[in-house]
């Protein structure tokens, strides 16, 4: 139960941060500092990708928590597949985010 609540809280936080980035166009101070070398266009693109991955990742973590509760309540049978699927999604998102940063570094404002 504690794991479900914990993952639910992390998920809600991720979704909240993603939406916040979409609405304000700002990341936290340390992330903003890391983006200083990027062009305006590149930084904006990275922020969009960051927001999208954070929201999807957050929803994935919430889904994990919900499925875990259902499993504990014996509503659904214990299954390893969904755990691997969610882990895979999170991994793919992390790879996308790393790839996006190097891609965004190449974008210049003149294009």
């Amino acid at each position: 139960m504690i794991y479900s609540i914990f993952s639910g809280l992390i998920g809600v936080y991720c979704v909240f941060m993603g939406i916040r980035t979409l609405l304000t166009g700002k990341l936290n101070a340390s992330e903003e500092k890391r983006l200083e070398g990027l062009s305006n266009k590149g930084a904006r693109t990275y922020k969009k990708i960051y927001a999208a991955t954070t929201i999807i990742g957050g929803l994935g973590v919430i889904a994990f928590g919900v499925l875990k509760i259902l499993e504990e309540q014996k509503i659904i049978a214990e299954n390893l597949v969904y755990k691997f699927v969610i882990l895979g999604v999170v991994l793919v998102l992390a790879i996308i985010l790393i790839a996006a940063k190097s891609y965004c570094k190449k974008i210049s404002d003149d294009e």
Binding site: I19, T21, L22, L23, T24, G25, K26, A51
Partner: peptide
């Protein structure tokens, strides 16, 4: 108000919809 400022990543209309839904 920082929400919906010039740095926002989505359009003003989308922001309003998102806030309302939220």
């Amino acid at each position: 108000a920082q929400i919906g400022g010039k740095d926002a990543l989505i359009s003003g209309k989308a922001i309003k919809v998102l806030i309302t839904v939220g």
